[in-house]
Simulated scan of single mutants.
Amino acid sequence: MAVLAGIGVGVYVLADDGGSGGGSAGPAQQDRRDSGGRNDPFGDSGGGGGGESPAPDSPGSPERSEPPTIDSGSVADPVSGISLPIPDGWSGQQLSVGASVTSDDSYKCPGDASNTCTKGGAYSAPALVLGTKGDTAEEVAKADIEANAEESYGEKAYGGITSHEELASKAVTVAGQKGYLVRWKAVTEKGADGYVESLAFPSPADPERIVVVRFGVDTDQQQTVIDEITKGIEVSEAGGGNGQDV
């Protein structure tokens, strides 16, 4: 896997794995209009986000334009063969190896006021890209939740997580696939506490590959938005990022 850089998020390339290539999923809660802040899964600083300026994808390559923002409907993740619904007051973007939906309600990150955080978000990416280990959806979800929590509410943006409570750990059907979710309530050192969830299931586009959807939502929001997005994930072959399923 070669580490590259992108517009506002880090970009990875999947080594020859079934012919799929591309970049990282976007952050679940970092305001992706900023090149830093919380929940950038592939920032140079590791979990909790990255504040590095974007760099070219590779020597001599053209500049990567930021994908369009979608304000309603759904946003497709053609790599994993799914679409994520866009809740009211949120927006979505299709990314190189995934898709994201993010709350439009933003504020200065309490742990680093130079960056912007949002009230909630979710993004999809193959477990391989995230580096999450496991052979089953349950194994992947359980292995991913701690990294997800740190990414969403970690030290850089929120001063660190002081404790957590497991709210759910159960099997669930997503886009016709047998998956598994783990949800925590994370208590932070500074600012908002958060609900975080790691949802894992076989990709409809490639059942041998497990896709992860990472959620992070401030606790002053309703957990129901996580359930709404989970229930609204559908099989999709759309590749244009226009908010329409195929």
Rank of each mutant, 00 (worst) to 15 (best):
G60E: 06
A168K: 10
G111E: 01
A55K: 13
F215S: 02
G19P: 11
Y107I: 01
V101P: 02
G49C: 05
L4F: 10
D112I: 00
V235M: 03
Q221F: 03
V3E: 12
A143H: 08
T132G: 05
G111A: 08
G73A: 09
D135A: 10
G21V: 10
A127C: 06
P207C: 12
A5Q: 10
V75Q: 00
F42V: 09
D104G: 06
Q223W: 04
C117Y: 02
D57E: 05
K108H: 15
P202D: 04
V174T: 09
V213A: 01
A175L: 02
D144S: 08
D227C: 07
Q244A: 10
Y107K: 06
A238Y: 08
D227W: 04
A200H: 01
A127F: 13
S198H: 09
P62R: 08
L14Y: 02
N242T: 14
G89P: 11
D17E: 14
D104Q: 15
S124C: 07
D105I: 03
G179H: 01
T173N: 13
G18D: 12
T69Y: 06
G50L: 10
P54W: 14
S169M: 01
P27F: 11
T173M: 11
V75A: 06
V217P: 01
D34I: 00
V235F: 00
A147Q: 15
K170R: 15
D71I: 01
G22K: 02
N39H: 10
V225N: 02
K108D: 15
K108G: 13
V75C: 06
D71K: 14
S152P: 00
T173H: 10
V235E: 05
K170W: 06
K231Q: 12
G6F: 07
T188K: 06
Y153C: 03
G131Q: 12
G89F: 09
E66F: 04
G160T: 11
A122W: 00
K142N: 13
T118R: 04
V129L: 13
E138Y: 12
G43D: 03
Q223D: 02
E138S: 08
L95Y: 04
E208R: 11
A149V: 11
P87K: 11
G8C: 10
D193N: 15
R209C: 00
S203W: 02
